[in-house]
Design a binder for these strands. Structure first.
Length: 350
DNA sequence: CAAACGTGGGA
DNA sequence: TTCCCAAGTTT
């Protein structure tokens, strides 16, 4: 009985995908390296956002050897604005492993793929099925939603326990279909038809099997109870100029690691800022102008940046390496928050 | 398990 | 404005 439902659902989704699936850049290739890059970029990131990043990345670094040998700064620059920058670190680390330990041969099994840095259960399943035709169901936001609705399950999809249970259902279904088309069909169905709000049940290939539709629970599924409390941080952020150069520093750890930004301290007074900056860099500066307040929102915190312009007072104390011309800044990976800061600064002062 | 980790779009 | 959430992984 259940197996019959799995079989019909799997076949319907696969057939629907072959007729209505989206034409996406990473679907025009069988190259596992390219598919890998796309899947990493697509983690928690929408398709339309990924497209230009994917095209540029593949154009710039067309092979895993290119990535392994690339300058790290260049990889972060390719990732600038995409977010979750650890993905870029992991990508390069994994590329080196493939080149050095696997002699450039791309891993071809779920277990081997899972060993790559940045490749978890979702990504390993996605690459295994799409690039190598391995029948492993993908568990992501889309497929969790579809399974919850199709089988009217009220399990909390924020829990790993639920992801494992739904993953087993996906694995049971995928046996009745071609793995690549089934998995991509499930994800397209979630993105195009079985959407979080306003689902198009009238056009759904599994509507006749859908238990939440029968129970009229579609709109309140899936259950997703996760608590995210957001902290608010206030900063003074200063664009410090010295002639035609501006001070920027690379984050060494934590949030926005590896990305460059302007000097930023959690203090209230210009004098405090000037002292903090001197203590850290040995450069005497003075805040000269208020620019604006800028808000930047992350998933788990919010920055309120009070932006000022500043200048180096005593050039004798200035170490040149931390000051960059505008054309040099264009080559650095800069966080979106601080690109907003730069834009506001230039708007006022140029 | 829960928390950390970005950004943008839609309602 | 505010909230949700989007092709998740690591620690």
């Amino acid at each position: 009985m259940t197996e019959e439902v799995y079989k019909e659902a799997a076949q319907n989704v696969t057939a629907w995908y072959r007729q209505y699936g989206r034409d996406l850049p990473w679907r025009r290739t069988g190259n596992p390296y390219h598919i890998w890059i796309s899947e990493i970029m697509l983690q928690q990131t929408q398709v339309d956002t990924v497209k230009p990043y994917y095209e540029r990345f593949i154009e710039t670094l067309p092979t895993v050897e290119d990535l392994a040998g690339a300058d790290e700064q260049r990889v972060f620059k390719l990732w600038e604005g995409l977010g979750y920058y650890r993905r870029a670190s992991h990508l390069k680390e994994a590329a080196s492993m493939i080149v050095n330990e696997y002699h450039g041969r791309f891993p071809e099994t779920y277990e081997e793929l899972l060993k790559l840095k940045g490749v978890g259960m979702y990504t390993a399943s996605a690459i295994a099925s799409i690039a190598f035709g391995i029948p492993k169901g993908v568990v992501d936001g889309n497929t969790l939603r579809i399974v919850a609705r199709l089988f009217n399950r009220e399990d909390n999809i924020a829990l790993q326990k639920t992801k494992n249970a739904f993953g087993e259902i996906m694995d049971a279904m995928i046996r009745y279909a071609e793995p690549s088309d089934f998995n991509q069909g499930m994800m397209d169905l979630g993105a195009m038809i079985c959407t979080p709000s306003k689902p198009s049940c009238d056009e759904c290939p599994v509507a006749s099997l859908c238990q939440s539709r029968e129970c009229q629970t579609v709109l309140r599924l899936p259950v997703n109870n996760k608590v995210v409390n957001k902290s608010i941080l206030e900063y003074m952020t200063v664009v410090i100029r010295d002639g035609d150069r501006y001070f920027m520093v690379q984050n060494e750890q934590g949030l926005l690691q590896h990305l460059y930004g302007f000097a930023q301290y959690g203090c209230d007074m210009p004098s405090e800022f000037e002292k903090a900056f001197y203590d850290d860099y040995g450069v005497k500066i003075r805040l000269t102008q208020y620019i604006s307040d800028i808000k930047h929102v992350f998933t788990h915190r919010e920055w309120r940046m009070h932006v000022y312009g500043g200048e180096v007072v005593d050039p004798a104390t200035r170490p040149m390496r931390d000051f960059y011309k505008l054309e040099e800044i264009e080559q650095l990976p800069v966080s979106t928050a601080h690109l907003k800061v730069l834009k506001a600064y230039l708007k006022v002062l140029q």
